[in-house]
Design a protein around this nucleic acid. Structure first.
Lengths: 357, 357
DNA sequence: GACAAAACCGTGTACGTTAACGAATGTAGT
DNA sequence: ACTACATTCGTTAACGTACACGGTTTTGTC
């Protein structure tokens, strides 16, 4: 509590400790070459004075010689409207913002359908001597391998989009899918009521359901069992392949044909497939909630065919990951390496605010 | 398009233009003392090279000698849970984040009920030679006076919370209240339906309705006339004093007593007054939507007595205002002095994400 | 054409941090 | 006592920008 208000620098510290600037610097950076006696003396002054390094000056000096390099490993995208181009946009925005501070990103891609393609990127990244890695934990074994290798080199890893328990602690910046499911439950129940029938629709590729699909469904069910258990709400699950025809069981066919209001929860970004599908099967009186603000979803939201969308803010995830890593690497501050992205509720009237973030 | 990728500095510019660093600097800052010929030559190099000043180095140099000072003029708050302490929290956060860049804030307060108290702060602020002002445009005449005085001194002014047409152009960081009203309309109609009856409740102080109350009500009505005009939806307006008893006209009494679902839209932060009021009048089957995440509102949201809250993100407004001003004052970049704060929809399940922003 | 004043422009220093370099002292081995 | 080497620490030069200072050239005046 001596003089914490005045922002003093290394020079002042040096004077107080009666040593040179170089010695203070060696202590602050643990560069060695300082007797334990002087080290202790300097550390005491550092503590007492509440010294905080001036990152401006620090980055000015460092950016010139050593740029922070971050490896980004994400699913490859065929076109720019693909979901996976969005976190990249956020990363790019952060890189632009911070480039003067000396930071850069390099991109690596893998194939969502082939874990091996992810595994093959691990070596180049680790050998590339990057300062940190941003990726996505889709494949358990491969994610564990990446994490283990990165730990050995002291490279922090930030995982986006999905949380997954791994062998050692990773950092996650993603939306809580269970809560997102609960929110979907509340919104849909508000529209459909306890008399309605509910459908959870998983539109998945050949690798089947992902963690997010499961957790969103669990959250959705949890909402009903916590709030409307006694109402005996009927919930059907439909697993629909991404390509090809919908194979409706007779039971589900029947459920769809009743007159009561029907609530449909699509557990990923493909809710835009529903309106046409419902129409061609003459299914009416339906409400739909889905994820993500892709063009088709937004178009249906605006036309009224989709009622709610939940935004995962993929750009923001990429942006936060890069900024968080920067903060960690320059200030040892890890509080921004783990984030719960808000479950953002989007309707026709407020969609314009979110379309570009 | 020559070499826009390489971030080159004044020294390189000087070499290219075959002048000294000092001359380039004089050109860049319009400090005079340069012949129009060399000025032109330097400017050409500056343009071609896509030079961008290194703010890091710039602020390092400047922060030592001249700190940017910003005046904040907001309603006085009796306690910390008051709404008006929230933008201040955001300003504080931004000041902490940027203090190393050389920025500081000084606070001035006025009384929400007395325009004169606002007017009396104008002189001290203008005479204080601040670099910019952040305030709130509650009083038209006084806001115009402040803006006119500030313009003369080239002080930018950012207004928070409310948009208002003034004699000259000001900067606004606030939520679009009309759209917020439309969103409220959609959410409430989803719960209540076209068979229901709607109430717009303005809980106001002795100065009566504010701009935001009007615009939210207009937006609410617009939602229904755009989407459900033919349904002939019934909308009652209740103007309730902040203190004292609710004076329900017989007509409204009657509307409240019918069995149909009733939707209540509270146009400001005091929706927490409704649940008790409804209960003591034996009014049932109601849905409520209001604004702001104050403690009481959040408690009712969690208990289920309030269905939706709309977040204006007051902290974020303050944060953005300060950061936007910083960017403007250091980089002449005014794109962040005007912002449409997203209309954020909050329910019980996702309220935890927003409670502290 | 001499001289002062004005116009123009290069040099140098500082901001706080970083790290290379080398000076000074100590220790060990012959 | 000499060299060889390790330990500890001070000095100094950057990073890119900002600006004061003072030096050089041009212009104006009689």
């Amino acid at each position: 509590m001596n003089s914490e208000n005045k922002n003093l620098g290394i020079k002042e510290l040096a004077i107080l400790a009666e040593v040179s600037i170089g010695t203070v610097d060696r202590v602050l950076h643990n560069r060695g070459g300082v007797s334990s006696e002087t080290k202790k003396k300097v550390l005491k002054i550092v503590e007492d004075s509440g010294y905080k390094k001036n990152i401006i000056a620090s980055r000015l000096k460092l950016a010139a010689t050593s740029v922070i390099r971050i490896a980004i490993l994400v699913p490859e995208t065929k076109n720019d409207s693909n979901y996976w181009s969005l976190p990249l946009q956020g990363v790019d925005a952060a890189v632009t913002e911070l480039s003067v501070f000396g930071i850069s990103a390099e991109y690596f891609f893998f194939d969502l359908l082939h874990p091996k393609s992810f595994g093959e990127r691990i070596d180049p990244i680790i050998d590339g001597n990057f300062d940190a890695i941003i990726t996505v934990p889709f494949f358990e074994a491969e994610s564990n391998r990446l994490l283990a290798r990165a730990r050995k080199q002291d490279m922090p890893v930030v995982f986006l989009d999905t949380e997954r328990t791994l062998n050692s602690k990773g950092n996650f910046i993603r939306q809580n899918s269970f809560i997102a499911g609960m929110v979907a439950g509340r919104l849909l129940h508000g529209l459909v009521g306890s008399q309605g029938i509910y459908f959870v629709v998983n539109i998945v590729n050949e690798r089947g359901k992902q963690i997010n699909n499961y957790q969103r469904e669990n959250g959705f069910r949890a909402f009903f069992s916590e709030n409307y258990k006694s109402d005996q709400i009927e919930i059907h699950v439909i697993n629909h392949p991404m390509e090809g025809e919908l194979d409706l069981t007779p039971e589900i066919q029947q459920a769809f044909q009743i007159a009561q209001p029907k609530g449909i929860f699509v557990t990923n970004a493909r809710s835009y497939m529903l309106p046409r599908l419902l129409e061609s099967n003459n299914i009416v009186n339906t409400r739909i909630i889905g994820f993500d603000l892709n063009q088709k979803n937004v178009a249906y939201l605006k036309s009224g065919a989709i009622d709610f969308l939940i935004n995962q803010k993929p750009q923001y995830q990429g942006y936060c990951a890069l900024k968080g890593l920067y903060k960690y690497l320059t200030e040892e501050e890890d509080s921004q390496l783990n984030m719960d992205i808000p479950v953002e509720i989007v309707v026709k009237e407020n969609v314009s605010f979110f379309e570009n973030d």
